[in-house]
Amino acid sequence: MALQNRVTPEGKIIANPARGGWMGNRGILHDDNKQLQQARWRHKAWIICKLNFKGRHRDVMAPNHYTELFFLDEATALAAGHRPCAECRRAAFNAYRDAIDGKALRAPQIDAQLHSARLDPSKRQKIIWEEWFDLPDGCFVRHEGQVCVIWKGALHPYSPCGYGPALPRPTSGLTAVLTPGPSLTALRNGYVPQVAL
């Protein structure tokens, strides 16, 4: 049976057997039986980590250790409100940080910005409305009932196992954007996430 540790672009944590390309962390969210509890985060530092780093090995959802979360790709993790890890992904963290505003922000400052941008007052994913023409590759939108990533001029419908066939990208009007403001800024300023296409 699949563990409930797969994160969607909408920030939901679901059970799905697909492993994903990246791991993440929001703190200890599970019990001793590897079951998610009510909390969906324990701190503001939601990070995106490599699956392999310095030969470290972890038992997934071990008691009293953070809950390993998994994402299809980096664009999914950014949409869910995560940012590159400053330890295992230092170069990506630096590029992301520089693309936010060009200043030498520290990780806690970025985490505070992301935390206020990713959740609405009811603690659900905050949606922002943007013009189609101004959206960068790598951001996620909700379009005609589907969650899609924008990539190379097209929309690609998301599923935990991969993306569906490309759909035409509208050129005008507003759309609901899932990727939080700081990450959207990073994408606009040249941060290029890994996308499983």
Score class of each variant (00 low, 15 high):
C148E: 08
K44A: 13
V192R: 06
A196R: 15
G20D: 06
F71E: 10
S159W: 01
E130Q: 13
D137W: 03
K34H: 03
L78P: 00
I128N: 10
Q109Y: 05
A107C: 09
M61A: 00
V141S: 05
F140W: 05
T171E: 13
I47H: 11
W41K: 13
G11K: 04
G55E: 11
H30M: 12
R56S: 05
G145A: 13
A15K: 02
I13F: 07
A62V: 06
V141E: 05
R58T: 00
H57E: 08
Y158V: 02
I128F: 00
T67S: 11
N52C: 11
C161G: 07
Q4E: 15
P180K: 12
R188A: 08
D32H: 02
S183K: 13
Q113M: 14
R97I: 05
P9N: 05
V192D: 02
A80F: 06
L135T: 00
G55D: 05
R106T: 15
Q4I: 10
R6S: 02
K103S: 00
C85P: 07
S159A: 15
A15G: 06
G145L: 15
E131I: 00
N5G: 04
N16M: 08
Q194C: 10
W132D: 03
D101Y: 04
L155C: 06
Y66H: 12
L29E: 08
G138I: 09
R58K: 12
A39G: 00
V177R: 09
A95V: 10
Q125F: 02
M61K: 00
C85T: 04
F71L: 01
I47F: 09
T185I: 14
R58S: 11
P157D: 01
S122A: 14
A77D: 07
G27M: 09
A39F: 06
R188P: 14
Q194Y: 08
C88P: 03
I28W: 05
I14E: 07
H143Q: 07
Q4V: 04
I14S: 01
Q35N: 13
M23E: 15
V177W: 05
R106C: 06
Q113I: 03
L184N: 00
N5C: 14
R40Q: 04
E131V: 11
N189P: 09
G138L: 03
S116L: 10
G173S: 10
N64G: 00
P84D: 00
H82I: 02
G173I: 03
A62S: 11
